[in-house]
Structure formats: C-alpha cells, structure tokens
Amino acid sequence: MSNWVKTILFLIGSAVLTHWIPTAFFRNLDTMVHEFGHAVVTLALSGKVMYIELYRDQSGVTLSTMTKSWAIIPVSLAGYMTASMFAWFLFSAYAKGKQRLGLQVTAILSILSLVLFVRNGYGIMFLVGFIVITVVVLALTPKWLRDFYYLLLAFLCLEESVFGPISLVLYAAQNSGKAGDATNLANHTGVPAIVWAIGFTLFALWCAKQAVSAFLGRNKGAARRSRPAAVSSYRE
C-alpha cells in the first residue's frame, strides 16, 4: 500500500475516532497555531500585531498592520502552512520518543499567544484552561496518560490542518470573496483564491504524509524491538 493511500486512510480514521469523543475544546489548538503563524511572520516583517481572537467554533482572526504592502503575501501564507508543519512536528517528536518536548513546545506557544496576542474573552479562557491542563499532564500524570494526551493533540492538529484547507477549497469555489487567507492572496497577486486554497491543501497533505510516515515508522520500530531475537543453530 502506497504512503499516500496510508495517509488518506489514516486521516479518515483519525477523523472518525476523534469525533467519538468530546474534543471541540482541544481543536482550538490548531486555530491558535494558525493565528500564531500569522502573528510571528507579521512581526518578522516589521509589521504590528494588534490582537488575535479565538472563537468557540474553532475559527480565529489576526488583526495586524503592515508597513510593506507585499508583506501581506507571506503573512497570509503563514497560517495554514504553520499549522501543517506543527502537526508534522508533533508526530516527528513522537517518532523520536520526545513527547515531553512536544508538550513543552505546545505549552510555550500557548503562553506566548496568551501574553502577547490573544485579547478576546473566549480566547483567553481557552488558553488559560489549555495551559493548566497541559502543565498538569506534564508534571503529575503517569507516562501512559501523558502519551494519550499527546497523541490526542497530535491527531487533532493533523486532522484540522488538512480538513481546514479542504474546507477553504469549498469556500473559494462557492464564493471567492469569503475564502479567508486565499482571498487575501488572490487580492494581492491576481491568482484565483481557489488556486491558493488547493495549494494549501496539497502542502497540508504533504506534511500529513510526513507525519504519518513518522508515526508508522516509530510503531514498526517498536514492534521489531519487542520481538525476541532469532537464535541460530549449527549442527555438524
């Protein structure tokens, strides 16, 4: 079975499994990372971030001002691409047995978002709650529970990072003026919004393929290590 087929089946399976449990609260992590990506690139290009808002429906917005008109292009690209790469990072860390590091990075990003950017009521409530839960998991829970929590976040980020751009393709096809980052890119480049949305989707799928390969590679390695070593015999 090809890696692409495994990736698609993996995404469908994770979407089904994660919808069986109440995960709406934690899905905002992907939104936070998306908006954090916009904010960091804005600051890197000498812009100013006014605020970030996170909403209950897992949507978000970053309000910023730029001194250079062309900077809106990398800023608009940053959101979905950052979310996709973050999901890949979580699975890569898992493959290397560095779940604690992954949770520490997640907590740090959340703290920075809370202190520097997020200003609406729900966004602050989400970040405070998420940071507290993550710190408690890091400090007080047994390894099996910490690993479960880590994989829950990783699978949710992977799912959201792929299905978000796919939804953007549908929005762009129905109304190109209401396709978020794709619309911003279309307005500043002349390239249709649906083309940008498809580009985000392809990049997200490529990152998902790398993430799934890392996850399956770790599991295969663990299975091999758990098998008893073969004992060879020689008889004259």
Results as ranks from 00 to 15, higher is better:
N3H: 07
K6D: 08
T7W: 02
L9V: 11
F10D: 01
V16T: 11
T18Q: 12
T18C: 12
T18K: 06
H19L: 12
T23S: 15
F25T: 13
N28R: 11
D30E: 15
M32H: 10
G37F: 00
A39H: 03
G47T: 08
G47M: 08
L54T: 00
D57C: 05
T65C: 06
T67W: 10
T67P: 13
K68Q: 15
P74Y: 04
A78C: 09
G79P: 00
G79Q: 00
Y80W: 04
A83M: 10
M85D: 04
A87N: 03
F91R: 02
A95T: 09
K98D: 05
Q99S: 12
L101P: 03
G102F: 02
I108C: 11
L109P: 00
S110P: 06
S113I: 02
L116Y: 06
V118A: 04
R119D: 04
R119A: 08
M125S: 14
M125N: 11
F126H: 05
L127S: 02
A139G: 09
T141N: 08
T141C: 14
K143N: 11
W144C: 13
R146C: 08
D147H: 10
F148Y: 14
C157S: 14
E159I: 09
P165F: 00
S167Y: 03
L168A: 08
L170M: 13
L170F: 10
Y171E: 09
Y171H: 08
Q174H: 08
S176D: 09
D181P: 01
T183M: 07
N184R: 08
L185D: 03
L185Y: 02
H188E: 10
T189I: 10
A193M: 06
I194K: 06
I198H: 02
F200H: 04
T201H: 03
F203I: 12
F203V: 12
L205D: 07
A208Y: 02
A208C: 09
K209D: 11
A211F: 05
N219S: 12
K220F: 10
G221F: 09
R224T: 14
R225C: 06
P228C: 08
V231L: 15
V231E: 10
Y234F: 14
E236F: 12
